[in-house]
């Protein structure tokens, strides 16, 4: 579904019924992210949270994609998580990634009132760090040899509410857990 058009490029919500879109997305990601993801990982995100998968198309071809989810974190705060973001190298440096991140965050806040948004990125991925940090994401942890290629990662968090800045032990549960 077409969401908006920016600089002549169409921004769309992922169509869960469209097998071709799924294939295009997985091809784009596997071609440009260092981590090899199984089909399960794509389905995990796309099937459960299709509303947080946005594509950018040129002549029907997907040239950019962002895949995210929203879940309670330790049942004390609502956390948005950006799982993957890839732009075809041919279309980089045009602000497409930034538009996709903005779109994702705007909807996460509007629909689910998220407390924070989190992601991980390689310490050497200067482009990703520049993008996210320009939007206010902070490096909260360095994760030792996090990726299969053995690079360290930064955990980045964008804090949106007071809950995001309070230690878990000091937050109330979102809902009572069922008695086992």
């Amino acid at each position: 579904m077409l969401l908006t058009t920016i600089d002549g490029l169409s921004y769309n919500t992922f169509d869960v019924q469209d097998q071709d879109e799924f294939k295009q997305i997985s091809r784009l990601i596997s071609g440009h992210l260092s981590e090899p993801y199984s089909i399960y990982v794509y389905w995990f995100f796309l099937n459960t949270w299709p509303q947080y998968c946005y594509t950018v198309k040129v002549d029907g071809l997907i040239i950019g994609v962002i895949i995210s989810k929203v879940e309670p974190h330790r049942n004390v705060r609502v956390r948005g998580y950006i799982g993957m973001l890839v732009i075809d190298p041919q279309y980089r440096n045009r602000g497409i990634a930034s538009h996709l991140v903005h779109l994702t965050i705007k909807n996460m806040v509007q629909w689910e009132n998220v407390d924070e948004i989190m992601l991980e990125t390689e310490v050497i991925n200067k482009g990703a760090l520049r993008l996210y940090e320009s939007l206010g994401f902070l490096r909260t942890k360095r994760l030792y040899r996090y990726y299969l290629n053995t690079h360290d990662a930064y955990r980045l968090i964008l804090p949106l509410t007071a809950k995001a800045t309070t230690r878990i032990a000091f937050l109330e549960q979102l809902e009572k857990l069922p008695l086992v």
Binding site: S134, G136, F170
Partner: peptide
């Protein structure tokens, strides 16, 4: 001020950075 295009208040960034000590 924090980053020019920040999507959150600078006070939130301040509090997030100091979260480990906040309790």
């Amino acid at each position: 001020q924090g980053p020019k295009n920040s999507l959150t208040k600078f006070e939130n960034l301040y509090n997030l950075r100091l979260k480990p000590w906040s309790s």
